[in-house]
Design a protein around this nucleic acid. Structure first.
Lengths: 195, 195
DNA sequence: CGTCTATTTGAATGTACTCAAAAGCGGTGG
DNA sequence: CCACCGCTTTTGAGTACATTCAAATAGACG
């Protein structure tokens, strides 16, 4: 059973769809279920889908030349995930996007999205809004990156996204915040104050 | 003389405007000239304009509780600048936006932009595209922030934006890259290799 | 030319990383 | 259901990277 209601509900927060538009929209979508540790995006392949998360959790990360992982984004219920540099510009991906839990996803393909945009211009507005929100979100993250030290970034994240922090492995969170997993462990155990 | 041709040219890279639309669009705009060191956005006031840079250079920065400056963004010819968290969400600004050179700007007010979007829906597409591009840009910046050390971030920036690096004060660049101005000075003079 | 601001330089300090080893935990198969 | 294996987290010691502070030098602007 294809249940598109979560994404419809999400979209109606931003634009109002006629029934017919809704039907056309969902015709472009496909449901995808993935299991923990599965990848939906891999380096060198163009990222051809924008992915909405119905349930579960994923992360997007880069592996650098030293083999270090750097988490670019997390995604949980009601978030979108992709290698957007690859998706928007039709370039080979540089990121992995991996399921951290068994997840239910709804995907739209790049070409379908283009068609959607030209047939139902309302979606221009929808994507404008979520892109702007995403932009503002990333700007806040950059600010935290450049203005706070490791412990403050951790505190800040815990405060804003306790739900995410509780669900993702510690090494993934550390690599998102931009420091080593050992340091995160030390921060968590306060082995800092007592010299 | 109000010369809107730069912004029109910029916009036509993304959407095609009828003459009438163009006229209506420019009726929403206003030209603003600022001198070096002038501010166009200040903390605690809502940032009411989206600013296109015809010529000159600006930067957006935060001053933290210790009095340290952290540059969030630079803007030069053909870029946009604002405190977007303030602009989009109608909250008091947290950033300063300051002219680094005498500059010519074209501004649109928030309400005018909303009206523009409803009267000429094409602009939804325009803002969608530039927001997506901005999103992808910030994602690359975050990656560089979390995966590179100070020297590498500097090299990376020099490579991508030599024009900006050449025009902005060193302390501003350092605070953009997320380290101290002293360190940037040392990196520039390679007082690193030779112990 | 003089003043104010920005950059450079060096020494001391602190923050975070690396490496290695131990402990904890979860999933899987016997 | 328990035992084992592999992966994640913890801990500590040593090191590297970056900051802070202070002082000197260089540059910009009126």
């Amino acid at each position: 059973m294809d249940d598109f209601s979560p994404i419809i509900k999400y979209i109606s927060k931003h634009i109002l769809l006629e029934e017919e538009e809704e039907a056309r929209f969902t015709s472009y979508l496909r449901i995808k279920k993935v299991r923990k540790k599965q990848y939906i995006v891999q380096p060198d392949f163009v990222c051809n889908h924008r992915t909405y998360i119905v349930s579960g959790a994923l992360r997007a990360y880069l592996v650098d030349d030293r083999g270090q992982e750097h988490t670019v984004a997390f995604g949980i219920e009601d978030w979108w995930i992709a290698d957007f540099n690859s998706y928007f510009f039709r370039q080979p991906a540089t990121l992995f996007v991996e399921a951290l839990e068994d997840s239910i996803l709804i995907q739209i393909e790049y070409n379908a999205e283009q068609e959607l945009l030209s047939t139902i211009p309302k979606f221009e507005k929808f994507y404008r809004i979520i892109s702007q929100n995403g932009y503002a979100f990333l700007q806040r993250r950059i600010l935290s990156n450049i203005s706070l030290n490791a412990e403050q970034r951790y505190e800040d994240f815990m405060q804003r996204y306790p739900d995410i922090a509780a669900r993702v492995p510690q090494y993934a969170l550390a690599s998102y915040l931009g420091f080593s997993t050992e340091l995160l462990s030390k921060i968590r155990n306060n082995r800092l104050k007592k010299r």
